[in-house]
Design a protein around this nucleic acid. Structure first.
Lengths: 333, 333
DNA sequence: TAATGATATTTTAACGATAACATTATAATA
DNA sequence: TATTATAATGTTATCGTTAAAATATCATTA
């Protein structure tokens, strides 16, 4: 900018005004300045601008695992909105680790992001840093793995309800003995397990605690948890398995097949999230559809509202889930 | 920082030195300053620091489509490295559009990123902006969809070779008539098609141009391209189909099944990239494995080398592909 | 006791952009 | 012609941090 000013013998201020289309700049001067800027290959320095305005137009995102299809889709939804509203996206990965999540948050703050979108890691049970950030007034919105009641808005699906409906669906089709592959006991995982328990309770069915095994959110955990169940002593086996999400279900399917059982005839199984793989499986997976892109969009939209209007109230936004009945539950013959 | 300085009656400079562990600060002073900083909840302002140092420790990434499994994995590889080396990741999405790609690049420059990682959009044939950026000396590395020979390093797999090997594999198993679902004629797409053509030529097999149809990189395009082939007048049909990538192959499979043909007995098909879905398909897809995470890692590593040493030479890095033989090619009975 | 050296701290200026205020030039009015 | 309004441009100070230069403090030595 100074160079342009020097080149044309005007002040930097005039250049600034011309390039930002402010009032009271002579049309000719403006034209010359704009042309010279183009000719000299001027690129505005947002860092400097940010320092003055204390606005970076940047949103920080903390994701538990980028390469997971679900989160990739959420990010894509977030990006849709930030693109529309001219914000930038600073992406960080907690790799499901509490420590890394905290470090990521600190970094985002240091970067002076205008707001933060967080989905908690599997390990996160201590919300003190999150709470502190919210208390300072820094706009923050949770998505998917949310912490409710600490002052920030949340965007997720009604996990308990989705899980309840899926369980009810199975019960309606005559299944009586269930195993459950549970996630870690944070928001989403907890809610889904509760939905499962409630459905069984409401139908006066027994809950066999041995068959509720923590698998976590990933294939490997699902595989191992399922194996553990199949290896339990005694010859009783659950007739149906509900998994906390599709990756866990996909892992479990591998274990079930390894043991020589057939899906859904020996063991029926269902997932949660409608992963892109679900419909393509050899035995297509019955699952609960979660509007991943919408979750991202809603979360980003809410965050930007909070950023642009500090009085925007906090709210818990629940999107609707849908049962996607395919073959793995054995219900649609 | 000023507040801390005022609080303790020292100068801001001393605070800066203390917090950055510089020389010549009294141990006691340092300790008090560090404590007070913690107590007052001080977060460094990287925006200000960047303005002084003209380094943001931020890397910009331009991705054609975030929600695609392949790119999500690449991003995950990139993030591994940026995390290790303490850089931040600014993510942008070109949505396969040339215009958006250019806008993204401009924005990243304005954000003063230390370097840029780009994978070109399907539409990109005009490299002038990219070249201009490279010519200004801004570190830039291409990955996957690269532009060679304009001064920037590139990281991808040897697409031509991978495609050639796959074609040769099919020929070796007796297939003689091939259709090809091609990507757009940019780097990756072009190279793969050439590998296909070369293999046929080297084996003195005819290339039927009608059966080379542009599908693009996505499921829908694959579906439509395949349909077009199957609807061609005359009763000859290709015995095997090679797709430019797995999403296109997955789309094509849908079309093939819709027409009532069986895979691989009526029509064999192969993909490229080893999508997470490939092994789970009803008829598991034979494909070419691309080390997606490594591509991300290598690209990020190279970029950081260029950032930290302007004399780092440009190079074209080709990672190795591997044939993954499953059932869809009908070769392993 | 003054000079020297080492350590600790402060002052100043700068990074690039801009808000707020100040100035100049020009035209319109009294 | 003097006065005032208006448009166009300039000056200064600032955002938070830090490099570089300047100054202060104190112990050591000649």
């Amino acid at each position: 900018m100074k160079k342009i000013a020097a080149e044309l013998g005007v002040s930097a201020m005039t250049v600034s005004r011309a390039l930002n289309n402010h009032d009271n700049v002579d049309e000719n001067t403006k034209k010359t300045i704009v042309e010279t800027a183009k000719k000299m290959g001027y690129t505005p320095n947002r860092v400097a601008k940010s320092l003055v305005s204390s606005r970076t137009y940047t949103i920080g995102v903390v994701i538990p695992e980028i390469s997971h299809a679900f989160f990739a889709q959420v990010v894509s939804g977030i990006e849709n909105v930030t693109y529309e509203k001219d914000y930038q996206l600073l992406l960080t990965n907690s790799a499901e680790k509490f420590e890394r999540e905290n470090k990521a948050l600190e970094t985002l703050l240091a970067q002076q992001v205008d707001g933060i979108l967080v989905s908690c890691s599997e390990e996160t049970t201590d919300f003190s840093l999150l709470k502190r950030i919210i208390d300072t007034g820094k706009p923050l919105v949770f998505f998917d793995r949310c912490v409710e009641g600490i002052g920030a808005s949340t965007v997720s699906v009604d996990d308990r309800n989705g899980s309840y409906n899926m369980t009810q669906h199975m019960i309606d089709h005559g299944y009586k003995t269930f195993a459950y592959l549970s996630g870690p006991q944070i928001s989403t995982g907890k809610e889904r397990l509760e939905g499962f328990r409630n459905a069984l309770k409401d139908n006066k069915l027994d809950i066999k605690e041995e068959w509720i095994v923590e698998s976590g959110f990933q294939e490997k955990g699902g595989y191992e948890a399922m194996k553990k169940i199949l290896e339990l002593p005694g010859d009783k086996m659950p007739r149906a398995v509900l998994a906390v999400n599709d990756p866990a279900a996909i892992g479990a399917i591998e274990a079930i097949e390894e043991f020589g059982y057939s899906i859904p005839d020996d063991i029926a199984i269902t997932g949660f999230s409608d992963d892109i793989r679900a419909r393509l499986l050899k035995c297509p997976l019955t699952t609960v559809y979660q509007p991943s892109v919408s979750i991202g969009r809603k979360a980003a939209e809410k965050l930007i509202k909070v950023i642009e209007n500090k009085d925007e109230p906090a709210e818990n936004i629940d999107l609707l889930t849908d049962l996607v009945i395919r073959q793995s539950c054995g219900c649609n013959k």
